[in-house]
Design a protein around this nucleic acid. Structure first.
Length: 670
DNA sequence: ATAGGGTTAG
């Protein structure tokens, strides 16, 4: 077209110009305008931008909408949505371009609400939106999940005549996917002309993503296979779909077939495997990615660190930390938080605290990770001190950080302080306590032996008590040998979950502890007649970097003979002193021996012996140099809080316990 | 004629 235009340019009548010369724009102003535009583009900080802004105001160049637009988009690029808003307010000229730049900038800085309100302002000011306005308005609508507004904007799109623009079309389909109107998304897709479909792979990708979201993987695969062309986004969307629906094996298969894997592909795998409880595979994937020379970004690193944290893989965590430092990756709030969390959950609270100090941008999540770390390590004073500091630095607490604080109180037996925090949470911060908060309170009262108060608390609760909370009360009753209340609690448990093996185990345990063997038998028969089975209790042990696993009572381990000998020795010792040889007793004995010969070569065997008799399944004991006990089961927790100065390594309970609705099949709760 | 654009990881 341009060529044609040149060809037909009337070159024979230049004289006409002399009669009506268009007022030549003052060259000086033109120069300054381009000068400022390049200044704006080279601005690296908002401060710099402010200076340029001031100069522009001084030269009275307010009428240049081009400059306004550039300023707005530059400041939103620097992630300062507030500044772009103030620029917008101060320049009097608001046209299509300034509006577009503003709406775009706000949407890209997650200020969706404001973005939409400026779109409405735009309509009110009779500035007609164009094909470049809609993608961002639709993005904001999608992120706020405003389906009705989305349809209204769709109408405007049609009225503006940009309905068939490829970008607008992709945004429409994506919006309908995000507001969960897959039917409408499909409709827009199906009504798209072939030209659009061939031009844009994204139109397909977005729809595949939508099908995956609603779990229609068949349709997703069908679309994927029917595409005229695929890019890595198509693969990633489908893989993510399989990950989201629990089929990580299929996801891995697909991943291996991707012709060109990018960082997103790898990150999808790392985080997807981690979400599906395959943390070891997630870590292997991460390190394989590094081996293949792909550079990890923030998201990849955060996913890998969270995988390490979940399984307590300290060595892997250290390698990732090393990668961060040696590749000059900035310790921003996301990475800092993930590192703090990893170190805390892997038992290295000192390292967690060190990283916390190095992380300059601390947000609520960073503080929460640190406070949680102290709470689970039994370091109450620090947890409380950091909580105060957090408030001091002007960060508002949320329900989660209160969970951490309540945990800290609970582990240190500071019951009244815990109750005060619960009050403060509702009264000072108007946060609604959840079942988890209530559970911690009941647990806390129960540990302190204040069982009547715990029961009263349950009755006074504003939400209906669930299985977990009665489980907490039950454990407390068991610990304090209050059989009547324990019976009451386990009756409620049976009512709430008649099919859950834990309900029966609870009841049978309490009878066993009281020596009421007929009642134990009765419960066991009840279980059998209702064909309820408890999963076999697996135990895992990491000793000197090697993981050992057993079922209770099995002899498959290569050191089984020695282990059982040691075990008998311990058990005999226990009987002599009149103890029931239970978990805690063995732990206590291990500790005693540690004092004598620092455990020397015995540590591994002792740990293994412990694993064979312990009743809590799927708990990991890590023995590295000094004895470290790790576990989330109640009995272990109780032990842990008794010896709060000892380093307690906690691992993600979901990994090692067989879970159903927050209750472990071993009968413990969380 | 004119400034600038869509997706997938959490």
């Amino acid at each position: 077209m341009k060529g044609l235009h040149l060809l037909f340019r009337p070159t024979t009548f230049p004289a006409k110009k002399t009669f009506a010369p268009p007022p030549p724009p003052p060259p000086s102003q033109n120069l300054t305008e381009t000068h400022f535009i390049s200044l704006i583009h080279s601005s690296k900080t908002t401060k710099h931008l402010r200076q340029v802004h001031a100069q522009i105001l001084r030269r009275n160049l307010l009428s240049s909408s081009h400059l306004t637009t550039q300023l707005i988009s530059a400041s939103s690029l620097l992630k300062s949505a507030d500044y772009s808003l103030s620029v917008f307010k101060h320049f009097p000229l608001k046209n299509l371009h300034t509006f577009n730049a503003l709406i775009r900038g706000l949407a890209e800085n997650s200020r969706f609400q404001t973005s939409i309100s400026h779109f409405i302002l735009m309509l009110r000011s009779s500035v007609r939106p164009d094909r470049l306005t809609y993608p961002f308005v639709l993005k904001s609508v999608a992120n706020l999940c405003l389906g009705c507004l989305g349809m209204a904007v769709h109408c405007l799109v049609v009225r503006s005549g940009v309905e068939f623009n490829t970008f607008v079309r992709v945004s429409l389909v994506d919006m309908y996917v995000k507001v969960e109107e897959l039917r409408l998304a499909m409709k827009v897709f199906d009504e798209s002309p072939e030209r659009n479909k061939c031009e844009s792979i994204l139109l397909w990708n977005v729809l595949i993503n939508g099908c995956c979201k609603v779990g229609d993987l068949g349709k997703a695969v069908e679309l994927f296979e029917g595409m005229p062309e695929r890019n890595s986004g198509s693969w990633n969307s489908l893989i993510n779909g399989f990950m989201g629906n629990g089929d990580w094996k299929r996801a891995v298969e697909l991943f291996e077939q991707i012709p060109e894997k990018n960082v997103v592909s790898w990150t999808t795998m790392v985080s997807g495997l981690c979400r599906n409880g395959e943390e070891e595979k997630a870590l292997l994937m991460f390190f394989r990615m590094l081996d293949e020379g792909v550079r990890a970004n923030d998201l990849t690193i955060v996913s890998a660190l969270s995988a390490s944290a979940k399984i307590g893989a300290l060595e892997a965590g250290l390698r990732i930390h090393n990668y961060i430092s040696s590749n000059g990756i900035r310790l921003n709030s996301a990475i800092g938080t993930a590192l703090v969390d990893m170190y805390a959950k892997c038992g290295n609270i000192e390292a967690a605290s060190l990283v916390f100090g190095e992380t300059r941008e601390k947000n609520l999540l960073t503080w929460t990770a640190m406070i949680w770390g102290y709470a689970i390590h039994g370091k109450v004073e620090q947890a409380l001190q950091y909580f105060k500091q957090m408030m001091y630095s002007g960060i508002k607490p949320d329900g989660i950080v209160f969970l951490a604080i309540l945990t800290a109180c609970s582990h240190s037996g500071q019951v009244d302080m815990g109750l005060n925090f619960l009050d403060s949470m509702t009264l000072d911060y108007s946060l609604d306590p959840t079942m988890k908060h209530y559970t911690l309170i009941v647990d806390m009262l129960g540990r302190a032996g204040r069982l009547d108060e715990a029961l009263k608390f349950i009755h006074r609760m504003t939400i209906t008590p669930d299985f977990v909370i009665w489980g907490a009360l039950f454990c407390a009753c068991r610990a304090h040998k209050n059989i009547e209340m324990a019976e009451l609690a386990s009756q409620r448990l049976l009512q709430l979950e008649p099919k859950h093996p834990g309900s029966y185990i609870f009841l049978s345990n309490i009878y066993a502890a009281a020596g009421r063997w007929e009642d134990v038998e009765r419960v066991r028969t009840m279980m059998q007649s209702r064909s309820i089975k408890k999963d076999p209790a697996w135990s895992y042990m990491e000793a000197d970097g090697q993981v050992h696993s057993f079922l209770a009572g099995d002899h498959a381990h290569k050191h089984a003979k020695e282990i059982y000998l040691k075990l008998e020795e311990i058990v005999a010792g226990a009987r002599e002193q009149g103890y029931m040889p239970g978990t805690e007793w063995v732990l206590h004995n291990i500790e005693e021996e540690e004092k004598e010969d620092a455990l020397g070569g015995h540590s591994e065997k002792l740990a293994l012996a412990f694993g064979l008799i312990q009743t809590a399944p799927r708990t990991t004991i890590r023995i590295v140099k000094n004895l470290r006990v790790c576990g989330d089961c109640h009995s272990l927790m109780k032990y842990a809080s008794k010896m709060s100065q000892r380093e307690i390594v906690l691992r993600d309970i979901k990994r090692f316990h067989h879970f159903k609705d927050g209750v472990c099949s071993c009968g413990d709760y969380w």
